[in-house]
Amino acid sequence: MSTETETGVEDGNTLFSDIDLSWEHRKNELFRWLLIAASLFGVVMLALLLFDVVTDFYTGLTEFNISLYEFFTQDGSQEETRAGFKGAVIASIMLMIMTAVLAFFVGVGSAIYLEEYAPDSRITRLIEANLANLAGVPSIVYGLLALAAVVNGIGIGPILIAGAVALGLLVMPIIIVSTQEALRAVPDSVRNGSYATGATKWQTIRRVVLPAAIPGIMTGTILALARAIGETAPLIMVGALFVNRTPSGPTDRFSAMPTQIYNWAAQPSEHFIHLAAVGIVVLLSFLFVMNGVAIYIRHRYETEV
């Protein structure tokens, strides 16, 4: 076959000359650069976005004389020069705590059931499939649910509890999935060791499995809350808009950080736009800190194991 025509020692330099690969390689290089350009697109957009926010933040402080001190100590206001972020920040923190309380126990409980107890039955598969679907439900729909069932249905009005219900249901699937992963990471040998001493399943879970999984669960929960704190649409649906006061308790009306930012960003006034930029920097700082804590927990306990 091939070698019939090529007997005899060939000159090394002409050995591969029957294969012209220059086009192949050029195609490959072209493709590589195309991929690099596409990959850079996302990076460039991220840089542009951050750059835009930071410059607006800066001009807000300098040209529009937004004082950070007043920004944090004053409530919202219709008057652009008097508007602050205090009420929104406090509402967001309260909202986060209430969301955590609502979603954490049920979420972790569901995950324990699914990972440790659930038989391989139809019902289990239904719950799992439903979970995957819930994670894909648009956040605004959770807002509609809370609006119809809690705000109008029970009739408690657009108060913090209603917002927390919407956000709690929204982050529940995220907490469940991350808890399941944390439980799965606990090796079975640990469980068997506990059973061998005569512990029941529940004792094993409470004393051995959960303590081993708790860093992972905490990391997942913090990340879920970081998602919740930036959610806007469900709160707007619940009616958390146009309130400037600092909420006095869980039953008070409120506007949180993202809804306040939306309110400002939707105004035609340049001053309000820059207030929104300052608010965004505050919101992103919250996210930054929360992600930092989550990463810290993960690393700290990963290295210990």
Binding site: V43, D52, G230, A265, A277, I280, L283
Partner: peptide
Amino acid sequence: MLEILAGIPTIVYGYFAIA
């Protein structure tokens, strides 16, 4: 960087669009 892009709240993207 892509993870950051994914973690930015949608309201911030809205701001990016309108501003």
